[in-house]
Every structure is written in structure tokens, then in C-alpha cells.
Amino acid sequence: MTWPDFGNLPEWIAAGASIGTLAVAFFAAQAAFKQVREARALREEQARPFVVVDFDLNPQDTFFFDIVVKNVGATLASNVRITFDPPIASTLDDSEQPIRAWSWFHDGFPTIPPGKEYRAIFDNTAARYQRTDLPRRYDVTIEHDGPTGREQPLKQTLDLGVYYNGSVNALYGTHHIAKALRAWVKAQGVNGF
């Protein structure tokens, strides 16, 4: 029995090794391209603005809720629009300017720089608890532009009920110390302080 002639066997082995090397290089290039694409997407995601809305207890007086709008992202947010469903309402709306008339909710914010926070008194905690005709839960939609154009709208659910289902620890700061010191000085009859 005679073996067929395949030519020079070392050349065939070298050709096979070259094809194998080419295949490995092709798959390595595909993996590298995928990693570069994912790294770029991650950089873009980390560099975008991220505007959130929240209710928070007022740091100086826990008898009030604040509404907070903050850009926690890394770049400037522009043309920021905030929509509440149902429309936002407060027990303090009996004043001459109800909360839904604030420019925050009909004009929006022209720009919010990274880290910038807007905070305002929203409601009285006890009065809000007493009023069953006002919603405690809101669906909020936040729309804004980023460096590459209009961002995907962010949808949040804000629930004031979480504040009524537990206890609140009072936090005292320099404002409270100064207030107590003024009261003590007045009680001591010291003038000019």
C-alpha cells in the first residue's frame, strides 16, 4: 500500500498553523472591538447628566418636607422638565402661590450643573398626614438634554408614606445650637447678644 503524496508535509503543517493563527487573531480582534465598544458606552453613561427628584425631611426642621431636584450626574443637564402624576399638591397651597404654580413645574430649569441641588419647603409633615384628600404617592417624569441631545426620560415613584411608617430621628445642627443659645442668653437677661 502506498501513501498518497500530499507534497511537502512541513509546508502543510505551517499552512495549517497560519490558518489557526489567523482564526485566533480574528476572534481576538472581535473581542477587543467589543471591549472598546463597551468601554465607550460606559464612559458615555458615566459622563451624562442624571437629574432626580425626591422628598426629604427639612434638615433644620423635621416638621417640614422639602422637595429636592438634583443633578447627580457628571455633566450639565439642560432644558429640564418635571411632570407629576397626579399634579403635585401641598397643604401649604392655601398660600397665594400653590406649589404647582412654581416655575419649577411649568417652566422647568434652563440648566442644572453637576452636583447642583435645588431644595424648597414642600409641605408640613403633620398637616400632610392629617389630609387624606391629598396624594401621598406621585409618579414623576424627568426629561432633560445632555451633551449628546435629548436623554431618555427618567420615571420615578415618590411616596411620602415611607416617612409615616417609622420613627424619625431629629438631627440637631449649628442652627439649633444657635437658637438654644439665644434663648438661654435671653433667659439670663443678657442684652446685646
Rank of each mutant, 00 (worst) to 15 (best):
T62A: 12
T62H: 14
F63G: 15
F63D: 15
F63I: 00
F64K: 12
F64S: 08
F64P: 02
I67E: 09
V68W: 03
V68M: 08
V69F: 12
K70S: 04
K70L: 03
K70H: 06
N71F: 08
N71R: 04
N71Q: 08
N71I: 07
V72E: 13
G73W: 03
G73Q: 06
G73H: 05
G73Y: 03
A74P: 05
A74Y: 07
A74C: 06
T75N: 14
T75K: 03
T75L: 06
L76R: 03
L76E: 12
L76P: 00
A77Q: 06
S78I: 00
N79S: 12
N79E: 10
N79G: 07
N79I: 00
N79D: 13
R81M: 03
R81H: 06
I82H: 05
I82W: 08
F84L: 04
F84K: 05
F84G: 12
F84N: 10
D85H: 09
P86F: 07
I88F: 02
I88G: 05
A89D: 03
A89L: 03
A89T: 12
A89R: 12
S90I: 02
T91Y: 02
T91F: 01
D93E: 10
D93S: 09
D94H: 11
D94Y: 10
D94M: 04
E96A: 07
E96R: 09
E96I: 08
Q97L: 15
Q97V: 15
Q97T: 15
P98R: 11
I99Q: 05
R100M: 11
A101E: 14
